[in-house]
Write a protein that binds this DNA or RNA. Sequence first.
DNA 1: CCAGACGTTGTT
DNA 2: GTCTGG
DNA 3: CCAGACGTTGTT
DNA 4: GTCTGG
Length: 226
Amino acid sequence: MCGRYTLHTSPQRIAELFDAQLAVGLADFVPRYNIAPTTPAPVVRMADVGRVIELMRWGLIPHWSREPSTKFATFNARSEDAAEKASYRGPMRYRRCLVPVDGFYEWRKRDRGPKQPYLFRMADDQPFALAGLWDVWQDELQSFSVLTTKANTLMATIHDRMPVIVDPADHARWLDPGLQDPDAVADVLKPFPSELMLATPVTTYVSNARNEGPRCIEPVEPTIFD
DNA sequence: CCAGACGTTGTT
DNA sequence: GTCTGG
DNA sequence: CCAGACGTTGTT
DNA sequence: GTCTGG
């Protein structure tokens, strides 16, 4: 699963990498090391003019919701059955997006002490894309969810689920609003190869969602209890 | 048909 | 809006 | 995801 | 134990 991540690469570099236009205000997006559910984050989606990067709230609020509330856990969606779920059926067909990140966190429960956070990133330390779904509520609030899949062998040491990481070669197809049959993009939703990723135990400073800054990704030595 | 939910994960 | 349960 | 709160009334 | 806020 995926409930916290980083995006400290500059918006200009992200726009370049994803071949997308930055929405107004996004050029000033400050480096983030602790993006949490219910908070805004940059998302890449197709618009009439092509790919755009906009701020959306993490935690998908369906357009039919009475309240823009976080009543249910919609910051992740199971890729295996999202196309059949009431909340994701529409988004899976018409509103797929990419979530730019340069790493994400997972926590492992220990026998004693607080949970140990791990930072997962690419071995080459480059930014990458998570598969996302988005929606609009009351023509004013855009929000998104991150798809999950089976853990690869690296992640399986901590969890049996992981976020879907979209291979750059699949970006265009995933975003294509012309593909309205979930089967046409189902092959994109697979576990990313472990050998291209790294995991590092980091300080529990990141565990509090109010904490920010480079200190969040500070490595720590694994302990006997890890 | 209508009413009521609409979600995920880990842990027990 | 759309799915599930009764 | 984790951390932190978890309640009501009347009065100011 | 379970919900809300970040």
